[in-house]
Design a protein around this nucleic acid. Structure first.
Length: 920
RNA sequence: GGGCAGUUAGCUCAGCUGGUUAGAGCACCUGCCUUACACGCAGGGGGUCACUGGUUCAAAUCCAGUACUGCCCACCA
């Protein structure tokens, strides 16, 4: 993408306060920056890796599903991105999630297929192309239908290619050879097939109904394509004079201009105030039309004046009242929202302009009683955000109730599961109150409705292809319905149409139903629910069993990221800067399960750092190998293991289990955090540091080296679904040292969960070593010991086992604790000028001749003592409570007792050490 | 009007079936280019877990209510 385009998409880059790289600042700053850049040369460089690896994956067809295979299958269909939308971070998240699931299952041995594609996005695309035409000084009507569609198609295909390219950069492991487009021929066949089938079952009908009309897009919309926006509105009170009487009825309305289409007034039959007027007529102000007063129980006596003006052609409720009382339907609007001839002198005015003039006229005539403030919610078009008008017109509808039944059952029986589960309530609520679906659109871009009308006898024929002649009168003069179908009418078939339905393909046979659908909550109704219905209706079963609902990406202020708001970030921008792995892991780490992530550009630094950390760890491990060394990572090493080896192996086991569990529950954020912490803290900060010899010249113990390689090999496999590139790169580098080298991580194997190394005692032992190291580090830092300076360490032991343990493992933590000489024993005396720390079972002394600040040391010890005393007090109280001792489980009591003893001991030691300080 | 989420450190969030000294990342402060990594290392400060009641020996965790925030649905003219 060129700079210019990027600028177009992100007009508000400035807002983030981040100047373009290195373009600002003076020379000095720049030269400093360059020095920094040079130092950073050791950092992992995704640019040198990602494109190369992705190309290899494609060449080797790793992502191509086998239609003749025998392994268990795992399929996902992509929520096809709209061709109008260059992918933003929301898509980045959505597709990362899917790719993680795909790679995870591919590694576990599934024949995994991820079907990619794009959505032709009827209204959205047409709106974009029409805007282009306006800029060029023409219109679609001038261009003509065929040319317009041709042009739109070209534009859509171009965008589609760009979008699919974005997905590739993200690293998505889609089966690209099977890419589909919701408007390609195959899908077109599916759409026709479905329309005809539903029509023949009387589930599709044509009707003259009130629909949502967008005067800007000039098409009808389904109820679900209307977004309601709260607005400060007004309530106008208008007097309707009774015919032949000197009295009037007062009517309240929020849309006064619709009175031009009024064909009656309605009151509640039980309303005593108005009973006497029912059956009489009033004179409609301005147009002076005589209209009847009817009684209808729809009218709420409490609201407004209790009298409702009835406009059957411009309000769904009025439409029904009108039908019940056989009132005339008068349409006062043109397609573009201006008033038509029925509006008399207001003809040609925009509806809002007409409202102003009409209200003014009512006022001068004294027919406007008053105007109240009134908040109302206005329906707006989900594509152009202009107010929609209820509008009477002839449209095609799908009867939904019967289709919804099995889709409701599926959730109730637990066959279809939402993650998080609470979304199933939203789904059920909608399904149980489902209304018919208006599927015809007055657009040109889309699947044309497969209906033909005989120009001579008016016969309606539903057919995939144009019939030769009328089935009734044999006339050859046939005309196809002008309208196209709602975009979602092709999207709802996606889970099976991508596999070739209505053809009986091998792919369909093998990969349908798919396993999981991942999407944001906004399209549960528009898409997810309808796919479920279509699955049952046409395939006889669910299209997927699990629906993974993830959060919507928001910016730093919590605003939803979108192209139109200009706060979007192109994933490509992030990938160019930090790499796809950084993008992916950052998104997953930032997205709490079931909640919306708040993301800024620096969110991605965390992921980048992690990717680099992993890469550096791999460098360290391999650096310490000789060229001719070979390892087998097929199984965990079992011989020649020391405590720290067993500990990391047991932590690895736990991590595998935890990750399996989290992924199985669709908690990718939790899984990623687990891996992040295991890799960084356990493996890098503790294990690697512990196996580092006391001095750089000494070699690493061979048994530990084997473990390090084994754990690293497992880490890259565990992380591969999340960060496929860097892990694959490390796999390649590591391969030369392995006898069980693998060409790719794509097919695993996924680490197996086991309990081989689980050992509570070992965990406790390791924890004591950590405690010693932490205590020493803390003392040294607070006493301002220069980090480079090693110091002696005296450990006075009260727990013999601990003494043995520290004795045995001292060579491993000597370097971590910066130890010069180490003295361990139960009779160790505190060296004269030394800082001290107390841990369970031991006292630690660090001689600090010339370094120690007695006041500071005293403060440090006192602070610690304070904390311990507080704890002790709480514990003592608890253990003195008879109810606690009576009711609490034994192990809880025992644990607290042991803790009390331990703390008491530590308090005593601290007191002693403090006392000794007094002498100085 | 109805429904669904959420309210824990300055920010974004963990804390599952009640017993932890309430955690992490980022930000902040201090010291460090130490045998892979300054995209780093080590240390540190910071929270009466929204509020009010209740259950319990014990509540951030369970129950009820209140307040606030966000989202969704709805045909009150």
């Amino acid at each position: 993408m060129t700079k210019d385009t990027a600028g177009d998409i992100f007009p508000s880059l400035e807002k983030y306060g981040q100047p373009e790289n290195g373009t600002k600042g003076n020379d000095l700053e720049n030269s400093e920056k360059n020095m920094e850049e040079n130092k950073k040369s050791k950092a992992y460089d995704p640019k040198a890796v990602e494109d190369r690896l992705y190309q290899t994956w494609l060449e080797k067809k790793y992502f191509h599903g086998d239609e003749n295979g025998t392994r268990p299958t795992y399929a996902i269909v992509i929520p096809p991105p709209n061709v109008t939308d260059i992918l933003h971070l929301g898509h980045g998240l959505n597709n990362t999630i899917q790719d993680i699931l795909m790679r995870f299952h591919r590694m576990r041995g599934f024949d995994a297929v991820w079907m990619p594609g794009a959505d032709h996005a009827g209204i959205a695309t047409q709106v974009v192309v029409e805007k282009q035409l306006v800029k060029e000084g023409t219109t679609r009507r001038e261009l003509g239908r065929d040319k317009f569609v041709e042009r739109t198609r070209a534009w859509a295909f171009r965008n589609k290619e760009y979008i699919l390219g974005q997905l590739k950069r993200i690293g998505c492991s889609c089966d690209w050879e099977r890419t589909r487009f919701t408007i390609d021929d195959g899908l077109s066949n599916a759409v026709k097939e479905v329309f005809i089938a539903l029509y023949n079952k009387d589930l599709i009908y044509r009707g003259n109904r009130i629909v949502n009309w967008c005067p800007s897009c000039q098409t009808s919309l389904s109820d679900d394509e209307v977004e309601h926006v709260d607005q400060d509105g007004k309530l106008w009170y208008i007097k309707y004079k009774l015919k032949g009487e000197d009295t009037y009825l007062m009517v309240a309305t929020t849309r006064p201009e619709t009175m031009l289409g009024d064909t009656g007034l309605a009151v509640n039959p039980k309303d005593k105030r108005y009973k006497k007027f029912v059956g009489k007529t009033v004179i409609l102000p301005i147009l002076e039309r005589e209209i009847p007063i009817v009684a209808d129980s729809y009218v709420d006596m409490e609201f407004g004046t209790g009298v409702v003006k009835v406009t059957p052609a411009h309000d769904p409720n009025d439409f029904e009242i009108g039908q019940r009382h056989e009132l005339e339907q008068i349409n006062i609007l043109n397609n573009d929202g201006t008033l038509n001839a029925n509006a008399g002198k207001f003809k040609g005015l925009d509806r809002y302009e007409a409202r102003k003039k009409l209200v003014a006229e009512l006022e001068t005539k004294g027919q406007l009683e008053k105007v109240d403030k009134y908040d109302l919610s206005v329906g707006t078009c989900y594509r152009c955000h202009n107010a929609v008008e209820p509008y009477l017109s002839e449209q095609w509808f799908v009867r939904m109730q019967a289709l919804a039944k099995p889709a409701v059952e599926a959730v109730k029986k637990g066959d279809l599961r939402f993650h998080p589960d609470y979304w199933s309530k939203t789904y059920l609520h909608w399904m149980e109150n489902i209304r018919d679906w208006c599927i015809s659109r007055q657009l040109w871009w889309g699947h044309r409705i497969p209906v033909y009308y005989c120009e001579d006898c008016g016969e309606v024929m539903v057919a995939a292809d144009k019939p030769a002649k009328c089935v009734k009168c044999e006339s050859e003069s046939l005309r196809q319905d002008e309208d196209v179908l709602d975009t979602w009418f092709s999207s709802w078939l996606w889970p099976f149409s991508v596999f070739g339905w209505p053809e009986k393909t091998k792919m369909l046979e093998r990969f349908y139903p798919t396993k999981v659908l991942a999407t944001a909550p906004e399209i549960i109704f528009l898409w997810v629910a309808r796919m479920v219905m279509a699955g049952y209706e046409f395939m006889g079963g669910l299209p997927f069993n699990d629906v993974y609902i993830h959060g919507i990406v928001r910016d730093a202020s919590g605003t939803k990221m979108s192209k139109s708001l200009g706060n979007g970030i192109d994933p490509i921008e992030i990938i160019d800067k930090h790499g796809a792995d950084a993008l992916r892991i950052s998104l997953v780490l930032a997205t709490p399960d079931g909640q919306d992530p708040w993301i800024t550009r620096n969110t991605f630094e965390g992921g980048r750092n992690f990717v680099n950390k992993l890469y550096q760890a791999s460098r360290f491990v391999m650096m310490r190998l000789k060229d001719d060394q070979r390892f087998d990572t097929g199984q965990a090493p079992e011989d020649d293991l020391i405590l720290v080896d067993r500990w990391i192996l047991s932590r690895l086991e736990q991590t595998v289990k935890e990750v399996d569990k989290c992924v199985g529950e669709f908690r990718l954020n939790a899984a990623a955090k687990e891996l992040y912490s295991f890799t960084w803290n356990d493996f890098c900060s503790w294990y690697i540091e512990l196996i580092k010899p006391d001095s750089p010249e000494e070699p690493i113990r061979e048994g530990s080296m084997k473990v390090a390689i084994y754990v690293l090999d497992n880490i890259i496999r565990l992380l591969h679904p999340f960060i496929p590139f860097v892990t694959e790169e490390i796999n390649g580098n590591l391969g030369q040292y392995l006898t069980n080298r693998r060409e790719t991580l794509t097919f695993g194997p996924w680490p197996e969960a086991s309990d081989k190394f689980a050992d509570e005692k070992l965990d406790a032992s390791f924890a004591s070593i950590q405690a010693v190291v932490n205590a020493v580090r803390s003392v040294r830092a607070e006493m301002n010991v220069p980090p480079g300076k090693r110091s002696d360490l005296h450990i006075r032991i009260t727990d013999k086992k601990l003494g043995k343990l520290l004795e045995e493992y001292q060579i491993y933590f000597r370097s971590l604790a910066k130890i010069n000489e180490l003295h361990i024993g139960d009779k160790i005396k505190k060296p004269g000028l030394s800082a001290s720390a107390v841990i369970s079972g031991a006292e630690i002394f660090i001689p600090l001749e010339g370094l120690i600040d007695v006041e500071q040391e005293r403060g440090r010890l006192q602070k610690e003592l304070g904390g311990l005393k507080e704890q002790l007090e709480r514990l003592s109280k608890k253990l003195a409570n008879a109810d606690f001792l009576k009711n609490a489980p034994k192990d809880v009591i025992e644990k607290d007792r042991a803790r009390k003893v331990d703390i008491e001991e530590r308090v005593e030691k601290l007191n002693n050490n403090l006392e000794q300080l007094m002498g100085w």
